[in-house]
Computed example of a mutant assay.
Amino acid sequence: MQTSETPAFSAPAKFFHWLTVLVLAVQYAIGWLMPDVHRDTKPVGLVGLHLSVGATIVLLVLIRLAWRFSHKPPAESQIVPPVMRLAARVTHGLLYVLLIALPLMGWANASARGWDVSLFHVVPLPALATTGSALGHTLGDVHKLTAWVLLVLIGVHVAAALFHQFVIRDGTLGRMLPGTRKMR
């Protein structure tokens, strides 16, 4: 139940949020379905698609952050204790950091393998590491672990939204659902 104390986010903020969710769901599906990357792997098929979707995530999150910093979000629920509001801010901050860092790690790893990275074979992107770079290869290993960390953090975010909806009942979940209107 949305209350006047918990105004909804704007339509563009909701759009960026749910588009990010959709693109991430696609990316995780591709990541699970694509073959493991080995020394002789080529960036074709699902591997190439994974690279393009990762680059798309970076672009989408940067646009989303630009929107977020140029538009004040609605006030937070005052029902929630300050420590929970702080936890929410930290979680959101970590989500943004990982949503940018994770694709950049994969991109650096692709560059270290000598692969060209582009946005769906239309917009070529610069290499983030030199071919053969030890750091680029290490970032590939960290990329896989970080993908799991991001998934756990997403789970925490979803659990918190459900906690707000069904335990606290403060309308927080409704702030980001499509169809809810921004209250003044």
Rank of each mutant, 00 (worst) to 15 (best):
P124A: 09
I168M: 12
D36Y: 12
V123C: 04
F120C: 07
L62Q: 11
L102E: 06
M1K: 07
D116T: 14
F16N: 01
L60N: 14
R89I: 09
L139W: 15
L86E: 08
H164I: 05
L22Q: 10
G171T: 03
A25I: 09
M34F: 06
G54I: 02
D36H: 10
R181M: 01
L162I: 10
A110G: 13
M105Q: 12
L24K: 05
A108D: 10
L119A: 10
V80H: 03
Y96P: 05
H38T: 11
S70N: 15
I30G: 06
R169K: 15
G54N: 05
L60R: 12
L19C: 10
L151N: 09
A75S: 09
V149H: 02
H157C: 06
G114R: 13
E76H: 03
S133W: 02
M176G: 04
L145Q: 10
T56K: 04
I100Q: 14
L151G: 08
R181D: 01
V23E: 01
R89M: 07
V167F: 15
Q165W: 00
T180P: 01
Y28C: 02
R175F: 00
G155F: 10
A88R: 04
R184C: 14
S118R: 11
P81A: 12
V80S: 13
V149N: 05
R64W: 00
R68M: 11
E5G: 15
W67D: 03
L49T: 09
G93T: 08
V47L: 08
T6W: 09
G132A: 09
V44R: 02
A87L: 11
L24E: 06
I30N: 00
V58S: 01
A161Y: 07
F69A: 04
T56M: 00
V21E: 03
A108C: 10
L173S: 06
T20R: 13
P74N: 11
H121T: 15
